[in-house]
Design a protein around this nucleic acid. Structure first.
Length: 453
RNA sequence: GUCCCCUUCGUCUAGCGGUUAGGACACCGGGUUUUCAUCUCGGCAACAGGGGUUCGAUCCCCCUAGGGGACGCCA
């Protein structure tokens, strides 16, 4: 059975890139009827925070990503990992090193000056220093040959072992380092496929060597190409990509975000719309693109608009209320109003923002209309006749049409000012729809307010 | 600097040796009872460059260029 995992470090909120990684990992597990696990890599005592653990959990929950067992906290396994590191040392896969920070810094500076890749030069590798508290343990990385693996997305990847150094697996304070702990935990959790960003490729090679020293089976690996900001640079808030929960706050639907995110790198023929349910059946790593992609706010908005319109009026009412407090149940024809607004909206928030004129009188005076004063009589006439008609959609449309003809007017001459009178703004849904939803009484009230001196 | 990954319309992508290189977003234009709305129809627009391999390269190989990433007692 496939077992995947998402392994964030709780040093910040779940970012859109991390969300995508989690999603891909989750979908791969589900499509293979496997399990998806979560592991917090919280061994950095200074930077890891409980609030971020909660925030990440909330983000995953909102994204409808369910865990198949309780999250694993790496910090709780520090002692065990330390023991294992010492075991590797005893078996000769690691050695003790007492180089000071100054020594290491100087070493690096010299290497950089010589335009070499900065790395530990193996000074203590063959000194057989006996390990004592306060020393670090370094992994004896193979000196010759190359390390390689077959990536599920990128294909064969091989790097000469000379490119690696004897990285530290146990710090001088006795705590294990990332590359060691991650490898051990993947082994312990029986992870079959590791899915993560391609910035981990070199880590993968290190971890594979650790796993081999440990005598563990090597999982398969899939490295996802990065998501870049719209600018093409590394993703950052500045470029519009934010934390997952910010999208929730701004009124994005998780289904829309999921659909958008999954299409960042993954595709399925020419289909664009996928339900989570379907993704859980058809997702496959072989359909993941090997090149990096850029975040696109436009595309996300398009998806959100789509999903907004997949919802029923009742569902929209509930979601808008939850999200911004605006309650369409308070107004007449609330369901019609919210559906109308959803047609052109990119978010729940936008629906709420655009809805003001359904809740409050725009109170537009004729002078503010920027229309010839002599047109006023025309509006009076329009208003007078409007009173008499049956307030049904068809009859409203018919009446407007006839009124325009009778007075030899073009639609904008009546429509533009009328839209402002009715809504207080120039961009709003169609006039007849508005009149109908607002109702005869309210519509007339607004027009009369405008005409009244 | 060294090493690794990547390169099809502006963007997300389809393509897996022979296609008028397809779709979607964005954009532009037309239509709709003439909104910077909706809906609808249509249009613009790409194989980074150079070498090979091959009867034939978007597709396979190499080089160059460009972009991204990794080089911590962070994860």
């Amino acid at each position: 059975m496939e077992i995947t995992r998402f392994a964030p470090s709780p040093t910040g909120h779940l970012h859109i890139g991390g969300g995508r990684t989690a999603l891909f990992s989750y979908l791969f597990a589900k499509a293979n009827k496997g399990k998806f696990l979560l592991r917090f890599e919280d061994t950095d005592q200074d930077r890891s925070k409980g609030e971020y653990v909660d925030s990440i959990l909330n983000s995953l929950h909102w994204m409808q990503i369910k865990l198949d067992s309780e999250p694993v906290y790496q910090s709780k396994k520090i002692v065990k990992h330390k023991e294992l590191a010492i075991e590797l040392y005893k078996k000769g896969f690691a050695y003790a090193c007492d180089c000071s920070e100054e020594t290491l810094t100087k070493m690096r500076e010299q290497q950089v000056a010589k335009k070499l890749k900065p790395k530990y030069n193996g000074l203590n590798r063959n000194k057989n220093i006996e390990f004592a508290e306060g020393m670090v343990l370094r992994f004896k990385f193979p000196l010759e040959g190359e390390s390689k693996f077959k990536d599920l997305i990128l294909g064969d990847i091989a790097i000469n072992n000379k490119e690696f150094d004897d990285f530290i697996i146990l710090r001088s304070d006795g705590s294990p380092t990332y590359n060691f702990s991650a490898a051990v935990d993947d082994m312990d959790m029986k992870i079959t496929t590791v899915i993560r960003g391609d910035d981990h490729i070199t880590n993968t090679l290190k971890q594979i060597n650790v796993l081999e020293a440990l005598g563990a089976t090597i999982p398969r690996y899939a490295h996802l190409p990065m998501v870049l900001a719209e600018s093409g640079k590394r993703l950052s808030k500045r470029d519009g990509a934010e934390d997952i929960l910010d999208y929730k706050k701004k009124g994005y639907l998780s289904d829309a975000l999921i659909n958008y995110l999954v299409r960042l790198g993954w595709s399925y023929g020419e289909e664009e719309i996928f339900s989570l349910e379907k993704l859980q059946k058809i997702f496959d790593l072989s359909d993941v693109n090997s090149s990096p992609s850029k975040y696109s706010q436009d595309l996300l908005n398009w998806y959100n608009n789509k999903y907004l319109n997949f919802l029923s009026a009742e569902e929209l009412v509930i979601k808008v209320k939850e999200n911004s407090g605006v309650d369409f149940r308070e107004i007449d024809n609330g369901n019609l109003a919210i559906s109308l607004l959803a047609k052109g909206a990119n978010s729940l928030n936008q629906i709420a923002e655009d809805s003001i004129y359904f809740f409050e009188e725009p109170q537009i005076k004729f002078d503010a209309l920027n229309v010839d004063a002599n047109k006023k009589i025309l509006f009076s006439e329009f208003c007078k006749q409007l009173k008499k008609i049956d307030f049904e959609k068809n009859s409203i449309e018919k009446y407007i049409k006839e009124f325009l003809q009778a007075n030899n007017l073009k639609f904008p001459e009546l429509g533009k000012p009328l839209r402002v009178i009715l809504t207080g703004r120039e961009n709003a849904p169609s006039i007849s729809e508005l009149l109908f939803i607002l109702g005869k009484e309210t519509s007339l009230k607004r027009i009369e307010y405008t005409l009244d001196d």
